[in-house]
């Protein structure tokens, strides 16, 4: 057990604990903040896996941009905190039991002897001039171009879906119709009839 192992376990445990806290935290804002911590720990694990560029992108894009927006959304929604927890205690024993059974079965069937460096040897270390970004870019736009394009289409479909769901027809809105105002004729205007008393 050397220093790298220690770092790995620190990040891994932080990721697991914060991931658990995302689910059980009472305050939704706390949940979002724990999710930020999860992403951050995962970025640490990715750095240990020598995926530096992806780790930095995870921190910059997810933690920096996506989660900040998420936080704003959660704050604006003002979710009722009590109603959400209904049934949590009732279902907890069953959920815990199922989880234990499934985890136990997985451990029994594929125990630690199936993993490790003998089963899956580590890739050889790269040279000093190894460029992570260049390699990633090279495969992203060649071997994985098809998948890359589909991911772009998914984003487009997401935009269409979001607008389709959120957009409502303007109704009960007191807005001016400029064209009609310009095209008005004198005989269409309201006339003030003086009281001839």
């Amino acid at each position: 057990m050397n220093f790298i192992h220690l770092i790995f376990y620190a990040f891994a445990i932080a990721a697991l604990v914060s991931g658990f806290m995302v689910v059980v935290a009472r305050n939704p804002v706390h949940s979002v903040l724990f999710l930020v911590l999860t992403f951050f720990s995962m970025a640490g694990v990715w750095i240990l896996l020598r995926a530096e560029f992806l780790a930095l992108i995870l921190v910059l894009v997810y933690v920096g941009a996506v989660m900040t927006l998420f936080l704003f959304v959660v704050m604006m929604l003002s979710i009722n905190q009590v109603s959400e927890r209904e049934g949590f205690v009732k279902y907890l024993p069953w959920a815990a039991l199922m989880m234990l059974v499934i985890t136990g079965m997985i451990v029994v069937v594929v125990g630690p002897e199936h993993f490790g460096l003998t089963q899956m040897p580590a890739p050889p270390p790269e040279g000093a001039n190894f460029n992570n970004i260049a390699n990633l870019g090279a495969v992203l736009y060649t071997d994985y171009a098809y998948a890359f394009e589909i991911a772009a289409v998914i984003l487009l479909a997401g935009i269409v879906a979001a607008i389709g769901l959120a957009h409502r027809e303007p109704r009960d809105r007191k807005s001016q119709t400029i064209e009609k105002q310009i095209a008005v004729r004198p005989n269409e205007r309201l006339r003030i009839i003086k009281d001839s008393k």
Binding site: I150, V153, I154, A157, A161, G164, L165
Partner: peptide, 9 residues
Amino acid sequence: ELLSLSLYA
């Protein structure tokens, strides 16, 4: 995912 995302909406 492309299929499901469109169907949800």
